[in-house]
């Protein structure tokens, strides 16, 4: 999966693809800002991912923040939007 221009944007897509695509994982290690921009992450999402990358693991607070950012993508069902 090297053609990143076709990957859907968003936080779930970022986490899934960076976890499962070794080439992308390496690029994220080398240039995190560039990869996060490709997935069109919001400023808050970028901040949380950057903080996570500086930690050895997810702290409780970072886990709460990451969950809050993932929630709209996970919980989304069209019947509840209106």
């Amino acid at each position: 999966m090297s053609d990143n221009t076709t990957l859907p944007t968003g936080l779930i897509s970022y986490i899934y693809n960076v976890t499962n695509d070794e080439a992308l994982k390496q690029r994220a290690t080398d240039n995190l800002a560039e990869v996060m921009a490709e997935f069109d992450l919001t400023a808050d999402q970028k901040r949380i991912i950057t903080e996570i990358s500086l930690e050895t693991g997810l702290t409780d607070d970072l886990w709460d923040q990451l969950s809050a950012e993932l929630r709209p993508e996970i919980q989304h069902t069209i019947k509840t939007i209106w």
């Binding site: 919001t42 400023a43 808050d44 950012e69 709209p72 939007i81 209106w82």
Partner: peptide, 11 residues
């Protein structure tokens, strides 16, 4: 068009 009220979206 609909926006989820995350801090970034509100900004």
């Amino acid at each position: 068009v609909c926006y989820y009220c995350s801090p970034h979206n509100l900004d």
